[in-house]
Design a protein around this nucleic acid. Sequence first.
DNA 1: GGACAAATGTTATATTGTAACGTCACCTGA
DNA 2: TCAGGTGACGTTACAATATAACATTTGTCC
Lengths: 189, 189
Amino acid sequence: MPIATSSVRRAVSRPKPSSAAPVKPGVFPDAKHDHGACVKSALQRAEDICTAKDVRLTQIRRQVFELVWQSHNPVGAYDVLEGLRDGQRKAQPPTVYRALDFLMEHGLIHRIESLNAYIGCAVPGDEHAGQFLICRDCGVAAELLDKRIDDAIGKGAKAAGFSIERPTVELEGTCAHCRRIKRGHKHRD
Amino acid sequence: MPIATSSVRRAVSRPKPSSAAPVKPGVFPDAKHDHGACVKSALQRAEDICTAKDVRLTQIRRQVFELVWQSHNPVGAYDVLEGLRDGQRKAQPPTVYRALDFLMEHGLIHRIESLNAYIGCAVPGDEHAGQFLICRDCGVAAELLDKRIDDAIGKGAKAAGFSIERPTVELEGTCAHCRRIKRGHKHRD
DNA sequence: GGACAAATGTTATATTGTAACGTCACCTGA
DNA sequence: TCAGGTGACGTTACAATATAACATTTGTCC
């Protein structure tokens, strides 16, 4: 699975206010967006949030966070583990799972249940459940924050007298870009 | 005991609704409903569907189907495997996974991604994705068929130019019954 | 019956996730 | 200053879930 380009392009733009969202919810990241800036922004926000909550974004947690953010594709725990091992470390699974749990607990990443994988949160600091569009072809997952979906789900649950504590909404399919490519192969247009 | 139904190959194009739906979508089954009737009805419908589609509901597949239907709680593949082993057989994991795949392929059961578990479909024969309310306390999962949710999800995806092929909607929380129990413990009312 | 495909058996292994306990660094209060 | 507590991480072992690959059996069709 191709990993989004690590930042060959230098972040020439001035340091953005850390409040800017790393990626826009509901939007698939452009193939050649500045992913380095994406990561940098996400990391800054994570640090701000941890500071505000008075919890520690330790070396390992930060590294795991960066590994999860290395692309917009959900990444498996053992891939993260692989990444952690680059270098002198010889990390074990519990190390990774603890860090992932920490990051999820503080809303910095989400777990994609249908893939057993993890992805950076596009809107950290905002208490919310993730809604995801996951492309079968390119593997990219885009986070949605769709109030209509939340509302509809809320109504459906209410009708059944059910109180939701953890909603999971994961929509697997094909993103616009990949669909264009496939159509191109078929009709050559 | 011969598998009578699998040899019946009549060109009946539509399965007649041999009985009511096993359980009503959107409703948590009553604690003391007649589950035997539930299972019987589900099995009958499964047989009708397989006959209509001209696929074989073999001994093993039927057994796995019944094991999945043994309750309204999602059941793990290895629990099913345990069940299959009651008696003389010594089934192995692939046997179970193949049967589960078959049953899913023909819309007779659903997989609950957030639990790595399987549950009988409340409305088999109807092409649809499952939407589930899953109670943390009693473990029961009720299937929803909520058009509002589908619509909202459809709109959200469309706005992103995304085409959905496999939606996953799993809502974990507390069912009305379990919530009443918990409230009772707190306020004694 | 013979050929072919579908279904299942069998062995081995891959992938994902946790339990349990030990170590160490850091803080805090007497 | 240091005893004791706590949080983070190390380490070992294992549990739980799932699949690859190939062999064998069963069913169907001619």
